[in-house]
C-alpha cells in the first residue's frame, strides 16, 4: 500500500505527538507493565519470603492452587462479599441521592455529612464498628437486649453467617457515599422538561423514575458498578481488620489469602500465583460486563 507522502509540516507534527506521549508511555511501562510481568514471572518460582531465595517450578504453583480447597472457598467468599456489598452500596447510594436531590432545606449540610464514612480512614472506621459489634460490651447488643429483641448477646463477628453479613454491611456503609456523589451529579443534569413532558403524558412519580431517571442514570451506574466491583473485589484492609478472615476462613477473600501465603506461610511464589489468578478472574468479569452493557445499548 503506497502511503501518501507526508509533508515536512505533517512529519513535524507527528514527531511532536510522539514526544508528548513518550513520558506517559514510559511511566505506564514502569508502574504497570513491569510489576505485572514480574508478578507473573515470580508466580513460576517457589520463593521463601524472608530470603527471597528459591527455584523454578513452572506451573506447579497454579496446579496446587487450583487443587486446594482453600482457593475455591476464598473465591466463593470473595464473590459473596463483592456482590453483597456492591448491591447494598448501589441501593443505598441511589436511594440517598434521590432523597438529597429533593429540595430539602438541610441539603447542603446533608451532602457534606454523607461523605463522612468515605473520608474516615478504614482503621478508624473498623475500630468503631468492632466496638459496636463487640459481643460483650458492644452498643448493638446492649440496645437490642434492652429493646427485648434478643435474650442473649449475639456474636456478630465470630460466627457465620453473622461475620459475612457484618462485613458486607460495614463495606456498604463505608463506600455508598461514592455512589451518592456520582449519582447526584448525574441527577442534576437531567433536563427538567423531560419530567414535565412525562407529567403531561400521564406518567406518575413511579413511572417517571423508571422511564426517565433510571435510563438517564444507566451510563453512570455502569461506570459506578465497574469501578466499585474492582475496588470491592480487591478490598483488603476492611476485612482483614474486621474479622481477619475468620471464623477460620469463613470470611477469607482472595486478597487475604495472598497476604497469608506471602507473609504468614512465607510462600512468595504461591502468593504471586494467587494474585495473577485473581487478576484473571477480574479481567474475565470486566470483559463480560462491558460486553453485556454494550450490547443492550443500540
Amino acid at each position: 500500500m503506497a502511503a501518501p507522502r507526508q509533508t515536512a509540516l505533517e512529519r513535524q507534527y507527528s514527531l511532536l505527538g510522539l514526544m508528548l506521549i513518550a513520558p506517559t508511555v514510559l511511566v505506564f511501562c514502569a508502574v504497570i507493565v513491569y510489576p505485572l510481568v514480574s508478578a507473573i514471572y515470580l508466580s513460576l518460582f517457589s520463593v521463601f519470603t524472608p530470603t527471597l531465595q528459591g527455584g523454578w517450578v513452572g506451573l506447579e504453583n497454579y496446579r496446587s492452587l487450583l487443587g486446594s480447597g482453600e482457593f475455591w472457598v476464598s473465591l466463593r467468599n470473595n464473590l459473596v462479599w463483592t456482590a453483597g456489598t456492591l448491591a447494598l452500596q448501589v441501593l443505598f447510594g441511589v436511594g440517598m441521592a434521590l432523597v438529597l436531590h429533593q429540595n430539602l432545606w438541610f441539603r447542603s449540610l446533608a451532602r457534606s455529612l454523607i461523605l463522612f464514612p468515605y473520608f474516615v480512614s478504614t482503621v478508624v472506621a473498623v475500630l468503631v464498628w468492632k466496638w459496636v459489634f463487640n459481643d460483650l460490651y458492644g452498643i448493638l447488643n446492649h440496645v437490642m437486649m434492652a429493646a427485648g429483641i434478643i435474650d442473649w448477646p449475639v456474636d456478630y463477628l465470630g460466627t457465620m453467617p453473622n461475620a459475612m453479613i457484618s462485613i458486607i454491611l460495614v463495606g456498604a456503609w463505608k463506600y455508598f457515599p461514592f455512589v451518592v456523589i456520582a449519582v447526584l451529579a448525574r441527577l442534576q443534569t437531567i433536563p427538567e422538561p423531560l419530567y414535565e413532558a412525562a407529567r403531561i403524558d400521564g406518567a406518575g412519580p413511579v413511572a417517571r423514575f423508571f422511564d426517565i431517571t433510571l435510563p438517564q442514570l444507566r451510563e453512570v451506574l455502569v461506570v459506578i458498578v465497574l469501578l466499585r466491583a474492582i475496588w470491592d473485589f480487591k478490598e483488603f484492609d476492611l476485612i482483614y481488620l474486621m474479622t481477619g478472615g475468620g471464623p477460620v476462613i469463613a470470611t477469607q477473600t482472595l486478597p487475604l489469602l495472598v497476604y497469608k501465603e506471602a507473609f504468614a506461610l512465607n510462600r512468595m511464589g504461591m502468593a504471586a500465583a494467587y494474585a495473577v489468578v485473581m487478576m484473571a478472574i477480574m479481567l474475565v468479569f470486566m470483559v463480560l460486563y462491558i460486553r453485556r452493557t454494550r450490547e443492550r445499548r443500540p
Binding site: 414535565e196 412525562a198 403531561i200 403524558d201 422511564d211 426517565i212 438517564q216
Partner: peptide
Amino acid sequence: LPPAQRDIAMVFQSYALYPH
C-alpha cells in the same frame, strides 16, 4: 387538576424528547 387530566398536550421549546 394535574397536567395529565387537563386534556392538553404541550410542545416544549427544547422538544423534551425522551432520549433513550
